[in-house]
């Protein structure tokens, strides 16, 4: 090999290595920048009032987002109650029963399509089938739209996690004479428990920061909710409204709400990751 060529090759190599290191730095830099801004600006909004009081109209000092915090928790919870059981059943079907069939392939495809569907389209859809026919915005409609977004995530992770359960386990249970459903519930589920839990957590993380589908469904409200059948306060729509407002007080609270949501989502994500790592693949 000629020496000049070798130098050239080494230089190119150094350049590329340097560039890729630089790219990683760019990514980390932006992550740090965003986290820092949200934490600094968000912390400034935290106070007992922020967590305990209701919002005040612009120009009236004080006030907090207590109702929106509770609203977001409830809407998310309800969406979990709707989306998770359905999603797990769907995943079980794909992994345990329909595995190779044409129908399963179609279902899997639909699941992928739904996962790629923009959340705002889901919002429009739920507005069309729930808000408009029923005649009012409601927390329920918000929860349903989140459940629709969550569904394919749960289906996918459930299927993946159940797949990890070794077939020998199923076969031995079947050989002992257990019916198929019993094998699924008592053996396969148990083996994949922490994996399923992770899936649920990741699904929660996916939806709890969603704003677009709530804009047309849950709307918002400055009061404590009386029931989920009314417009329901929630953090993300509040952030959207407050951030676009010109009132300094509201903008500050929008940062506080952002920090809260971000902490929640990151916490759930990290717990999910931790579980996934701690789980011994059986």
């Amino acid at each position: 090999m000629q020496p000049r060529l070798a130098t050239y090759r080494k230089l190119t190599n150094a350049l590329v290595v340097g560039l890729s290191g630089f790219s990683a730095l760019i990514g980390l830099f932006f992550l740090g920048w965003i986290l820092m801004v949200v934490i600094l600006k968000g912390m400034a909004a935290f106070s007992p009032d922020f967590f305990l009081k209701l919002p005040t109209p612009p120009g009236v000092p004080g006030g907090g987002l207590a109702n929106a915090i509770v609203g977001t928790l409830l809407i998310t919870l309800l969406s979990v109650l709707l989306g998770v059981p359905l999603g797990i059943l769907g995943g079980v079907y794909l992994s345990e029963f329909g595995e190779q069939s044409k129908i399963a392939a179609a279902v899997r495809f639909c699941s992928n399509v739904l996962m790629g569907t923009p959340s705002i389209i889901v919002g429009v859809f739920i507005y069309a089938i729930m808000v408009y026919p029923l005649g009012h915005f409601s927390g329920y409609a918000g929860a349903v739209s989140l459940a629709v977004i969550m569904l394919p995530v749960v289906v996918r992770t459930t299927e993946d996690m159940l797949r990890l359960v070794p077939n020998s386990l199923r076969e031995s249970a079947l050989a002992l004479g257990a019916p198929r459903w019993k094998v699924t519930v008592q053996v396969v589920f148990r083996a994949a428990k922490s994996g399923l839990f992770t899936g649920v957590l990741l699904a929660i993380a996916r939806v709890s920061g969603e704003t677009a589908p709530l804009l047309f469904t849950a709307l918002n409200s400055p009061y404590w909710m009386e029931s989920l059948s009314k417009p329901t306060a929630n953090l993300t729509v509040t952030i959207f409204n407050y951030a676009m407002s010109p009132y300094k007080d509201w903008q500050r609270q929008a940062w506080g709400a952002s920090l809260l949501i971000m902490m929640g989502v990151l916490f759930v994500t990290l717990v999910g990751r931790f579980y996934l790592k701690g789980r011994k693949t059986p």
Binding site: V70, L74, L77, L78, V80, L81, V84, P85, H136, F137, F189, K193, L196, F197, S221, Y223, W224, M225, E226, S227, L228, K230, P231
Partner: peptide, 27 residues
């Protein structure tokens, strides 16, 4: 898993009931 879901459900139910007291909100 089941227990976890059940607890979630109960909490949700209680929270909804707790706020079901009647007062008028005009939208």
């Amino acid at each position: 898993m089941k227990k976890f879901l059940l607890t979630l459900f109960l909490i949700a139910f209680m929270l909804v009931m707790a706020h079901a007291g009647y007062s008028m909100t005009l939208n």
